[in-house]
């Protein structure tokens, strides 16, 4: 068993070296295919995060009239929270709103002065509010209808301007990302098809170049598996080299892109490098396994056709 295995490896390596240019071309096509696939994985992650990032910023604010008590607002908050569309409701008191505003503008003396003047005048500069977040982007329309029709609607004013601005942005973002994804899928399908044809063609050429050896192997009673295995191992070797090369190339690409992306998504926990690191085995091991499995299947079909074995 071990003897046969070592011999199969020996024949596979011989086939690899004796047709080194063919091997290089095949590996190059595999590398291109795998690179596009990994690029798409990264891009999908980015696109989803970009949409989520904008989604997270969307909320609807209810500004309560000055004379509404905190207890009443709390009661309304509980009512709103009971709705199935709501993810979270945050109470922002007039003091909190003021403090947050001041801390944002502490360097601007004019603003601070103006606010202080207002404060001294009638006491309340900002209104108390409820910041409402939906479970899902699509639910904001329903939430707005519910709020407008609610019995408390006279107690607050709805500010939906942020929601509208961000909705336009997310729609555009998802539209662009969907188009790029579609383009990516088309490109990867083309590359996968090329890779499939290439594996099939490799086997065809390998059988042609090895036809004398194969003929003699059949004549002297080599089993079909022994004849097939070196060719299959040769292709698995292509896959292994291609995956290793893609890991090196893709990490090179990531090390250039990642700092730029981290800057772009500042404050948002997105790190492509970490994502690929923590899913390394799944992503690259999976690609190697799927390609190899496909190689075995297509090799068996090609050999059956060309060798009648």
């Amino acid at each position: 068993m071990m003897t046969s295995f070592l011999r199969v490896m020996k024949f596979a390596l011989q086939g690899f070296w004796r047709n080194i240019w063919l091997s290089i071309i095949n590996i190059t096509i595999l590398i291109l295919t795998l690179f596009v696939i990994n690029f798409l994985i990264g891009f999908n992650l980015l696109a989803d995060n970009a949409v989520n990032l904008v989604n997270e910023k969307i909320d609807v604010n209810l500004y309560f009239k000055e004379n509404i008590s905190s207890e009443k607002i709390e009661e309304i908050k509980q009512k709103i929270l009971a709705s199935e569309y709501i993810e979270n409701v945050e109470f922002v008191s007039s003091e909190d709103a003021l403090n947050s505003f001041l801390s944002r503008h502490e360097s601007d003396e004019h603003i601070v002065e103006a606010v202080n003047e207002l404060k001294e005048g009638d006491g309340q500069v900002f209104l108390s509010s409820l910041k409402i977040k939906a479970r899902n982007m699509d639910m904001y329309d329903d939430i707005l209808i519910e709020l407008k029709e609610s019995q408390y609607s006279s107690l607050f004013e709805i500010d939906e301007s942020e929601f509208k601005d961000y909705t336009n942005m997310t729609n555009r973002l998802s539209d662009i990302s969907n188009k790029i994804k579609l383009f990516g899928y088309v490109v990867s399908i083309i590359f996968i098809l090329i890779a499939l044809m290439m594996v099939y063609n490799t086997i065809k050429i390998a059988t042609y170049t090895h036809r004398e050896e194969i003929g003699i192997m059949r004549l002297v009673g080599a089993t079909n598996n022994f004849i097939k295995s070196p060719l299959i191992f040769e292709i698995i070797l292509y896959n292994l080299i291609a995956v290793i090369a893609v890991v090196i190339l893709f990490y090179g690409f990531l090390s250039v892109m990642n700092p730029l992306l981290i800057k772009l998504f500042e404050g948002y926990p997105l790190n492509l490098m970490e994502y690929f690191n923590s899913n390394f085995i799944w992503i690259f091991g999976g690609q190697f396994l799927i390609m190899s499995l496909f190689s075995v299947i297509s090799s068996s079909i090609a050999l059956k056709k060309f060798l009648k074995i």
């Binding site: 004398e212 009673g221 022994f226």
Partner: peptide
């Protein structure tokens, strides 16, 4: 055993290798 008019030998293998190849292909121990 089969022998043909055109010998069917592997040109890149020596006499010894042509003969041993038949055994190698069938998994015979070294």
């Amino acid at each position: 055993g089969v022998v043909f008019q055109d010998y069917k030998l592997l040109q890149k293998k020596s006499v010894y290798e042509n003969v041993s190849f038949a055994l190698e292909s069938c998994g015979t121990q070294k």
